[in-house]
Design a binder for these strands. Sequence first.
DNA 1: GTGTTTGCAAAATCTTTGCATGACG
DNA 2: CGTCATGCAAAGATTTTGCAAACAC
Lengths: 138, 138
Amino acid sequence: MTDGRATRLEQALRAAGVRVTRQRAALLQVIAAAEDHPDAAELHARAMTAGAGVSLATVYRTLTTLQAQGVIEKLEFQGEPARWEAADQTHHDHMIDVDNGAVMEFSDERIERLQAEIAAEMGYEIVHHRLELYVRRR
Amino acid sequence: MTDGRATRLEQALRAAGVRVTRQRAALLQVIAAAEDHPDAAELHARAMTAGAGVSLATVYRTLTTLQAQGVIEKLEFQGEPARWEAADQTHHDHMIDVDNGAVMEFSDERIERLQAEIAAEMGYEIVHHRLELYVRRR
DNA sequence: GTGTTTGCAAAATCTTTGCATGACG
DNA sequence: CGTCATGCAAAGATTTTGCAAACAC
């Protein structure tokens, strides 16, 4: 079975002048399959396990490229290496369990609205934002 | 004129078993005087300019210590070295102008409340959080 | 074909650390 | 004085980059 989403993505990338190399295709697969939030080293390991020869340098370059294309998003939690997630979902923020490192997603349009209001009041518009809740089970 | 705040802080540190060395006193001064959000290298430079001999390693160790004491807070904006600010103010979040790097502070109790609500609904309590708005003038 | 992308290894950046020496309380 | 802190230099961790060879379109 062919992965429809990956194929569509590849076409979009080509249309944007980004070459879909064997390495990039492999990383797209790995990212699409990820249900967590892996960092560069982890993505590299998964691509290698999947049989795709890719260098870590290429992983980094590819992540930058895919981010510029809006295909993936970069997450930078406190003091950890950057993590990545597919951007094909609806917007959400993250909640991190400080005891076990679990990362959960949540979204709240009231908060989104308030952020936009606050920025507007100060004469700005939001380009992007970052909201992370570091939490503990109660 | 003596700096009342710095003196009180030093007493609190000593009470907590933290020695107030010449280097730490100098850094406390520099941090108290800072009206911006300097990183370790910048704090080091300011301390040196002020005539205090301090090594960069000590600056890093001191920042870690002061953070553990709740005296300062660590800010980690996207892809920059960590910045620091005195913790003696009321809680606030940050807004960063993506065009010129200016960092502004803001606070909104409605957002704070919503965050706590969301965490509670999922069975968690907030240990700390991070909210950054990357903005552009409109 | 030809301009992009890759791999490798080296470098860059920021931060931490081991160990002998110095100094705070 | 005993213990904690400092300085130095070396190491760590993550990410970036120069350059020649390989590849996508």
